[in-house]
Design a protein around this nucleic acid. Sequence first.
DNA 1: GTAGTCACTATTTGA
DNA 2: TAGTGACTAC
Length: 759
Amino acid sequence: MQNTDLSFSYLDDLNDIQRQAVTTIEGPVMVIAGPGSGKTRVLTFRIAHLIKSGIAPWQILALTFTNKAAKEMKGRIEQVVGQSAYKVWAGTFHSIFSRILRVEAHRIGYPNDFTIYDTDDSKSVIKEILKTLSLNPKEYNVGAVRSRISSAKSNLITPKAYGTNEELLMADQMNRRPMTHKIYEKYVAKCLRAGAMDFDDLLLQTFKLLYTNPDNIRDKYQSQFKYLMVDEFQDTNFLQYEILKLFSIYNGSNHNICIVGDDAQSIYSFRGATIENILQFEQDFPDVKTFKLEQNYRSTNYIVQAANEIINQNSRQIQKKIWTANDGGHKIKLTKAMTENEEGKLVADKIIEQKNRYSLANKDIAILYRTNAQSRIFEEYLRRNNIAYKIYGGISFYQRKEIKDIIAYMRLSINHKDDEALKRVINYPKRGIGQTSVGKIIQIANDNEVSMWECLNSIDFNGRAKKSVGEFVNIVRASQQKAKTSDAYKTALFIVKKSGIIDLFKAENSIEAQGRIDNINALLDGIQEFTEDDILEEGENIDNQERTLSNFLQTISLMTDQDKKEDNVDSVTMMSVHAAKGLEYKSVFVVGMEENLFPSYMSLSSPDQLEEERRLFYVAITRAEQHISLSFANSRYQYGNVRFNDPSRFLDEISDDIIEANITMKAKPEFGPPKVLGGNFKKLPQNKPKGLAVDASNFKPNPASEIRVGQQILHLKFGQGEVLSIDERNVATIRFSNAIDSPEKRIMLQYARLQIIEE
DNA sequence: GTAGTCACTATTTGA
DNA sequence: TAGTGACTAC
């Protein structure tokens, strides 16, 4: 079926392989796309080509990594096929699936107005469960338990299956968290009771919906989505792949699925992503046609060469040869700094120099780091030099307390059963419902296995609390009414007023409080924009894109960092390497190139994780078009200590003749015994921390590897002690003779600074 | 029931 | 260091 309009001129803009990938529209297709190889082009043109070939836009499902990418894609498709581009189902896994669940959730026992729990909410649920099970939160690290549950869900392991899985139970046993399966079970029940889905549920419940197939719902979606495209396939997890299969195997045959990815850029295994999916794909779809995009159009030859040298150190990868027709360009710059402060200064200097010399704009430049905590220093020096910058990641606007509070009211008015939201605001602003009352509600809700809201009525509170609870219930009910009859903005305005939070800040009358009021106003502005967006984008006539408060909440909870990025501002970009995926800049600074930082010390023990760090570095370098500058600091202030790290091993992997350094890398320290603060602890010119038991200037800690059971040691803070034991995780139990509280402390040797005074 | 202090502890990436 | 949770005093 061909459209009458046969202008396929856009195909002329593609190279041979790209064109083949675009025009092969039937059957399974795999595109392995190296960095800068025109992947986005292929994706957009392929969709445009499908539409031009007579496929209805709403029959195309395109799953991208960010919502912004989806939006951009639609814009570019529009240029080829016009307005109908906006009818393509394009978005992230999470946003597309949550859109489907908003319509279908009731079929699997959830309300269609379900709340989306973010990571904080999940943790809070787990904390509460720990309490009810009388488990020690110190042993049951909440974050660890959460990610355990998350990965179980991502691997389709139900609580029941978890409870009978020897391997998992054993692992939990080893980690001294044998009750994890019990927590998992309770967690799932609690979320269901609250009408809430966490991020994993958006995938898992979609799977459940299609798999259990109530009312033959699978048929509805299989027959709608005739063509599937998946970007960044290397970062999908097992569960996501299973859902894809449910979508794409229609009547056992219709395999119009196209996946695009690059195994060398797989950087999310910590989130459950697995490269296995790429390998598995070839097995599951044996008639797959594979196209490899190997020509890099983005970067100069030096950059491509460096990237190749690095990635070749990895053992497992799909064979490909990335090349470029671009000339050598500028060599890779390597800068050594003495301290992280100097690194900040040097990078700022270099930025000024590059701006002048190559007439770069701020927005052509990015500073990438391994951890978000590194941003502070660069922020300081850029500000000092009057260079505009923008930081992505870290604490976002929606994480601010006052914003979360307002949002909790909103969530609660949409879904009363949202326990996490209720706990947050039932006594905020203070209305005399204290710990005791809240504790009582939690207890009774748990005992009866209902949400907290559902038992508010039946509890007999004492006089004051009774009145307060009544007030609170009224606020929520009134907000709910408003949400039913008004748009998001009007409802938000109502809630902000009714909740009394603004009054609270006004009464406080401080600069800080004013800042919070400003933030709330910014939130309202954002909601207004969202509400009016409807009028602006006429083409976006997707069924459930109404501008209700409920939809606003969904949008913000599924927003990625890149979605928040504004393009038209001329500022230097600062972000983690992870967040930089898919982006490109004329000049890129990768900072903190040190052992224990990049690669992260968390990855040093496992070869697999080390390879992932290397891929991450590969991603970092290949963001650059013309300039790549690497830097490291000799010493760095971390967690309140000065740490001395060797230059990153990744620097060795780039050949010297394409590096231009302000030092000779030959002078690199040889890999001797780990220098974990060995001997060269330096006293900093700053206030001496209070309560030191030992004079810091004479304190010379020994390497952790030398600590043995039975030794007498010195600890800066606790003074003299005896090492009683060291367990398999390198945690030492030490009895300190003059410790005030408990004499025995468990010290992580990895971080501890101990000086041996007697063997 | 609330506010303030204090000591302890964990350090990555994120939808 | 920074964030948190427990404890104490009002």
